[in-house]
């Protein structure tokens, strides 16, 4: 009996220690549902469809050939440099859904050799994307606009530079500078989950 109590105390202590050592959540997305679409035109729901495995999520728009390429490549590098990525999911979401359709995202993914598992590129209805960006703290503002010959408008966006690490229970655990953070930092944090 004494041995049983001692073991029980040890188990409780170990669980408590593990909980206290894990990173506290910065947010919990399990109370929301965003209906989105991937680069193949398939419907997905964030975060429901991603529960059960960690998510590395970056935010981009494809008319940004410089800094967003860094963010995209950084997400790719995290996967490529992980010894055991397991079921980890790697997702890039556009904050320019008017121009970044599924087809545009598919071409963009191809250019990075990322139109394949475990990568996913997401777009959606502009209102839904706007709600998602507000929730994850990604801000945008138009910075440069020009009328072009066919009456269309060309514009660029100032935007947050962000990659998020979301755990298997849809909780935001880490928030990184998307283009600046070395992949090994994100990998180390993934290994702590």
């Amino acid at each position: 009996m004494r041995l049983y109590i001692r073991n029980l105390i040890l188990v409780i202590f170990t669980i408590g220690f593990a909980i206290s050592c894990s990173s506290p959540a910065l947010d919990d997305y399990s109370d929301v549902q965003y209906h989105l679409m991937d680069q193949n035109g398939e419907s997905v729901i964030f975060p429901d469809d991603y529960e059960g495995a960690p998510v590395v999520m970056g935010f981009i728009y494809t008319n940004c050939p410089d800094i967003c390429s860094f963010i995209t490549a950084n997400v790719s590098k995290v996967y490529n440099e992980m010894e055991n990525p397991g079921e980890t999911q790697f997702v890039l979401v556009t904050f320019d859904p008017d121009r970044d359709t599924s087809e545009v995202l598919k071409n963009y993914a191809n250019a990075f050799d990322m139109d394949k598992d475990p990568f996913q590129f997401l777009t959606g209805d502009p209102d839904v994307i706007d709600q998602l960006m507000t929730r994850v703290g990604v801000r945008t503002q138009e910075s440069y606009s020009r009328e072009i010959e066919d009456g269309e408008r060309m514009y660029f966006l100032n935007h947050s530079d962000k990659i998020l690490l979301i755990d298997s229970r849809s909780r935001l655990i880490f928030d990184y500078g998307g283009s600046m953070t070395p992949p090994n930092i994100i990998i180390e944090d993934l290994e702590k989950l």
């Binding site: 940004c64 410089d66 800094i67 801000r139 503002q141 910075s143 440069y144 660029f156 100032n158 935007h159 947050s160 530079d161 962000k162 500078g177 283009s179």
Partner: peptide, 12 residues
């Protein structure tokens, strides 16, 4: 490409 306040990036 340049850095703005509050972790925002821009292009001009």
């Amino acid at each position: 490409t340049y850095e703005l306040a509050d972790d925002m990036m821009g292009m001009r």
